[in-house]
């Protein structure tokens, strides 16, 4: 981040997306199956917010909901999703579609599958420009070449005539980023964009995203399960477990002083190069399936510190444990009944 954007991010930058108490689930013959339970997060202009979780956490569903693209059986059962103050859930589907690709864009994990094999990449980047911005064919093509250069594809003009199958995985992901950025969106939702890429390619893509984000003052919601990636590029992070956000706050704070046992468990599970640990950290047990969440705290069946009477009988709420200082007024919130008592070890 540049110095100016840092400043702006600190002092009340524009809120792009605000998700408030979002609950999502689907109906089954034997009842309602919840997938998300009261999820809230915010993304401001110029900041990268990470959404971290493992399978069954609900992170992908959260991102789909934010784009208004929940797949058929899933329904919103409560809460609100606002983009620049406008309630997406109350909006006409046509209006939501107008937002997509223009003000809010999304990039996915498997870039090659998201590209149409029958059209050149130049055409595919030009398409949103012609559809949403009404550019002529020539104009759109020029801008497409500019975008390819923006995403650091060498020999951009030549490459614009290539087809997706002629490109490597990293190239396809860059093309997807170019398409997503074509109409200069304000918010980019990135769902595990580097998970399927080689680690050397991943590094370049992350650097590219950081650079673009600085230049365009983009807000990014970055969904991933990779803590290393989160540590590299996310300013703020929310950790999800079994449909809930269990901890959120400034990324470094989260790693240095995790307040939730799950966050602590996750961090301990990452083997780090250069550290001589004796055994691999892990969290025993498995993630409870949707609809089989334990009463009270969803994590209590795997937590090393459960306490009867406090962790098991009532829903646990997300509470502020640190409002942050004047230079960094970003609160650190935790969903843990024992957060004031536990001292958990973080990364030093």
């Amino acid at each position: 981040m540049t110095a100016e954007t840092q400043e702006r991010a600190v002092v009340g930058a524009a809120v792009l997306m605000r998700v408030r108490d979002l609950s999502v689930g689907y109906r089954r013959p034997h009842g309602w199956v919840p997938i998300l339970d009261s999820v809230s997060f915010t993304v401001r202009a110029g900041e990268v917010v990470g959404l971290v979780g493992e399978s069954g956490s609900g992170k992908t569903v959260s991102s789909l909901a934010a784009m208004g693209q929940l797949p058929r059986p899933l329904q919103v059962s409560g809460g609100a999703i606002e983009f620049e103050g406008r309630d997406l859930l109350a909006m006409d589907p046509k209006q939501v579609r107008k937002l997509r690709g223009v003000e809010v864009s999304m990039i996915f994990q498997d870039a090659l599958r998201c590209l149409n094999p029958a059209y050149t990449i130049g055409d595919q980047i030009a398409e949103p420009l012609r559809v949403h911005k009404g550019m002529s064919r020539a104009q759109a093509h020029e801008r497409a070449v500019e975008l390819l250069e923006l995403v650091e594809i060498p020999r951009a003009r030549e490459r614009a005539r290539a087809y997706p199958h002629q490109l490597s995985g990293g190239m396809c992901q860059r093309v997807m980023i170019a398409i997503a950025l074509a109409c200069s969106p304000k918010l980019l939702i990135a769902d595990e964009p580097t998970t399927a890429l080689d680690v050397t390619v991943q590094k370049q893509i992350l650097r590219l995203l950081t650079r673009i984000q600085n230049e365009m003052d983009l807000g990014i919601l970055f969904i991933t399960h990779d803590l290393g990636v989160v540590a590299e590029i996310c300013d703020r992070t929310a950790v999800m477990y079994a449909g809930q956000i269990v901890e959120e706050g400034p990324t470094e704070e989260l790693f240095r002083r995790p307040r939730h046992p799950y966050t602590h468990g996750l961090i301990s599970s990452v083997p780090r190069i250069g550290h001589e640990d004796r055994r691999f950290g892990s969290i025993p047990g498995s993630v409870p399936k949707a609809g089989h969440w334990p009463t009270g705290c969803h994590f209590r069946t795997r937590c090393p510190y459960p306490q009867a009477g406090r962790c098991d009988d009532r829903p646990i709420t997300l509470e502020v444990v640190d409002a942050g200082g004047p230079s960094r007024p970003v609160p650190h919130r935790v969903r843990c009944a024992r957060s004031d008592e536990l001292t958990l070890e973080g990364v030093t």
């Binding site: 493992e54 399960h225 996750l266 599970s269 990452v270 691999f280 950290g281 892990s282 969290i283």
Partner: peptide, 14 residues
């Protein structure tokens, strides 16, 4: 496998 499960399997192998 999920991150928090990997350690279980690796420890088992060890």
């Amino acid at each position: 496998l999920d991150l928090s499960i990997r350690g279980q399997i690796l420890n088992l192998l060890v």
